Simulated assay, not measured.
Amino acid sequence: MTAVRQDVMKNAVALPSFEESVPLTITFAANWPVRKVLLRIVGTALILGSAGLWILPGSSVMPETALMKLGVSVFFFLVGLALLMVHHEHNQPDAYFDPIRREVRVLQKNARGRPQTVLRRGYDSLGSVKFSDCFMELYDMDGSVLMRLPIETPEIRHALRTQLNGLAHSAA
């Protein structure tokens, strides 16, 4: 009986322990940083312009134009606020790397602010992964880019390399 148990133990697949591989969550980077900066500048200008309509010297406070001025300033304020919040970091999805289930999940916050899974892929269904100094690119089986994620620290890069080692082809 002990010989059978030793045989089974030799052939058993070693599951990763939680101490060795910790689940990682990475937030996606904004796609176009220039567009993000431009929208923030325009949003700030619209918010300041909404207040400037009432502060500027020479603006008449006639009863006929006061209602129109109020409507324009509220419109400027709301549009400016919307432009500032378009690429806010809380609106970006998160990529969650789970070493126990051996899968990557993309989580997006729903209308109530709760994370909701929008993509789930097993490590064995990934084509390859490429690490650079600041980014990690996951490729699909056909060679197309599945996702590009920013890597902030060398510790995160090392943890991802150990998780994806052998499960997806790691290119440099």
Rank of each mutant, 00 (worst) to 15 (best):
R35G: 09
V79K: 03
L39E: 12
V13Q: 12
T44K: 03
R5E: 15
E155K: 12
A3G: 07
L83G: 03
S128K: 08
T153L: 03
L56D: 11
H169F: 02
R121K: 12
D98P: 02
V106S: 01
L70P: 02
L48G: 08
P33I: 01
R121Q: 06
G113C: 06
A12Q: 11
T2S: 13
P16R: 15
T2D: 15
R114C: 03
G43R: 01
F131E: 10
L83Q: 08
F28P: 00
D94H: 08
G122A: 12
G122Y: 09
S60R: 07
F135P: 00
L48K: 03
P63G: 03
M62C: 06
R40Q: 11
V13S: 11
V86S: 00
V42F: 01
A14Q: 10
A51Y: 12
G80V: 06
D140R: 15
R161K: 11
R148G: 14
T153W: 09
F76H: 04
S170T: 03
A14W: 07
D94L: 10
P150E: 09
D98C: 05
L15A: 13
N31P: 04
T2M: 13
L146I: 09
N165C: 07
S59L: 06
V79S: 04
P16L: 13
R112Q: 12
E152A: 11
E152M: 05
A82N: 09
L107E: 02
V22A: 10
S59I: 11
I100F: 01
G58C: 12
L138S: 08
T2K: 14
P63D: 08
S21P: 00
P93H: 01
L48P: 00
E152H: 06
S21T: 15
A171Y: 12
L24D: 04
R5P: 05
T162N: 08
L119V: 13
S170H: 04
M1Q: 14
Q6L: 08
V129F: 05
F76C: 07
I41C: 03
E103K: 05
F28Q: 10
K69E: 04
L84V: 08
P115C: 06
R101I: 00
L78M: 12
G143H: 09
L164N: 01
Q108W: 00
G52V: 01
L119K: 07
R112K: 14
L160S: 02
T117A: 12
R114N: 11
G166M: 04
F97C: 00
L56Y: 14
G127M: 00
I47C: 06
G122V: 11
W54E: 11
I151S: 10
P57I: 01
R105M: 14
H158M: 07
R35D: 06
V37M: 07
M68E: 07
A30C: 08
V72F: 10
S128A: 15
A14E: 10
Q6S: 14
R40N: 14
V104H: 01
V145C: 06
N11Y: 08
P57G: 06
P150W: 09
P93M: 04
L149Y: 04
G80T: 09
G58E: 13
V22G: 03
